[in-house]
Design a protein around this nucleic acid. Structure first.
Lengths: 108, 108
DNA sequence: ATCGTCTATCGCCGATTGACGATGATCTAG
DNA sequence: CTAGATCATCGTCAATCGGCGATAGACGAT
């Protein structure tokens, strides 16, 4: 009868919010379509946005661990986190009460 | 090599944006946990928000068809749209290129 | 050490969002 | 017809967001 715990709702909302912008949807799809990781410069070239804008979106996506980053020399290579993407809760999961991967340091 | 179509990205983003707010996450979960439809007044009592605020959130959720509305007399009863919830794209679906239910007037 | 490259961060701006109260529309009851 | 109930809409406000240019930090090459 009570509401869903607010902290949990906040966490779920943050995951959905990471994909609530069309530019980030395009960015995630781009990273997923490519098999190899991409540098920020490559993403900037592919998307036609300012470098600071791309960097900001990448920060949001890494914050929820949808993408992972690996520094190689001077550059930073971003790639899809397949584990996080797969266990991302759909609306059905959320609604069915599936707690989803709350573990932040686990596989997700 | 090209980006995902912008219109498609916009549509996906709008679906995610509907759940990008913790209050709406709580609202969806509440409607799903209850089997019966709920009137606005019942939802207001359950959530402790102003009636206009609840009405606004319901408008957003009905706009993407996560919830359905049925007027009964003076009241309006809201319920989960199980079809839409089930075919809501997870991040994995989005990324795998599953077009998801683009049909607006179909089952979703 | 210095330069050029690559990326993150900062500050700014217009636009959008979430919350509220007040008002208006619609229906029921008497 | 009037009064009350139920809900949507409007206007407002503070906060957040998405974009940009400019700046700063880290690294490799010279």
């Amino acid at each position: 009868m009570d509401l869903l715990d607010r902290a949990t709702a906040d966490e779920y909302a943050s995951w959905f919010r990471a994909l609530a912008d069309p530019t980030r949807v395009q960015l995630v799809e781009l990273l997923a379509r490519r098999q190899e990781p991409m540098s920020v410069g490559q993403i900037v070239a592919a998307m036609g946005l300012a470098q600071s804008t791309v960097s900001q979106h990448l920060k949001i996506l890494t914050g929820v661990r949808f993408v992972l980053v690996e520094p190689v020399g001077n550059a930073r290579y971003y790639r899809i986190n397949d584990a996080c993407i797969e266990c991302f809760p759909s609306a059905a999961d959320l609604v069915m009460g599936k707690p989803a991967p709350t573990a932040p340091t686990g596989a997700c």
